Amino acid sequence: MENAASRLAQVEGNIARICKPARREPEDVTLIAVSKTHPAERIVPLLEAGQRVFGENRVQEAQGKWPQLREEWPDVELHLIGQLQSNKAEDAVALFDCIHSLDRPSLLKALAKAMDKAGRRVPCFVQVNIGDEDQKGGCPIGEVQAFLEKVRAADIPLAGLMCIPPADTEPAPFFALLAKLARENGLDGLSMGMSGDYETAVQLGATHVRVGTALFGARQKP
């Protein structure tokens, strides 16, 4: 408990420290504790320390942990931050409060259908392939504007844009580019920044940072 509380306080303190020179308010940055691969017993100490927003990568893994945890902590907000297969759209809409990986027309169609069926609109970030990497998910930069129009037409609430910069490179230019794309398309939400670079992301306008290792310690192998 003490470890979890002190790690949480440190990350929140870092966010507040970065916000000051950037003339931002710390409460404008949502800290998402990335609990993927961590069992419920490792999540509980963070819940007890006051953290309420969590991120999971896989629908099936989240289904195994969160319904029970939410019985005790019903005010938890759960974000899907990993790639989503179209055939899991219904499950994702039922379980998550926000989806960060909307990136292609087939998934848009599946999510719109699932939301209509559930009578529930789940805010989505459009994931952008900011480094133009073949192996990564994300909407190509040149197609972002057209894809956003399709999302709006499908009546899916747009939370903003999300990206994962290329590994082992300076992330700042990629964060700045995502912020520019968001401004050009009238969006405020920016899901960017992880344990190693969330301070840079906050400096450049992140509204949501996805932090795992800095809160949980080294990740357990799935």
Rank of each mutant, 00 (worst) to 15 (best):
M1W: 03
R7C: 00
Q10I: 00
Q10Y: 02
V11R: 00
A16D: 04
I18C: 08
I18V: 15
C19M: 06
K20F: 01
P26L: 01
V34K: 07
S35H: 11
A40M: 06
A40D: 03
E41P: 10
E41K: 10
P45E: 06
G50P: 13
Q51I: 12
R52I: 03
G55N: 05
E56S: 12
E56Q: 12
Q60S: 01
L69N: 09
R70W: 05
E71M: 14
P74W: 05
E77H: 14
E77I: 14
H79A: 08
L80G: 04
L80Y: 05
L80N: 05
L80W: 05
L80S: 09
G82R: 03
Q83G: 13
Q83M: 03
L84V: 09
K88P: 04
D91R: 15
F96K: 08
S101M: 13
L102V: 05
S106Y: 00
L108G: 11
L108E: 04
A110N: 10
A110W: 12
L111Q: 11
K113V: 10
D116F: 00
R120G: 05
P123S: 02
F125V: 13
V126T: 14
V128M: 11
I130M: 04
E143I: 12
L148Q: 01
A154I: 07
D155L: 03
D155S: 05
D155C: 02
P157A: 06
A159D: 01
L161N: 07
L161W: 02
M162K: 07
I164H: 01
A167S: 07
E170R: 10
E170C: 09
L177S: 11
L178C: 02
A179P: 06
L181M: 14
S191Q: 14
M192N: 04
M192G: 10
G193R: 14
S195G: 00
G196T: 11
G196K: 04
H208N: 01
H208V: 01
V209D: 02
V211P: 06
A218G: 01
A218C: 01
R219V: 11
Q220R: 13
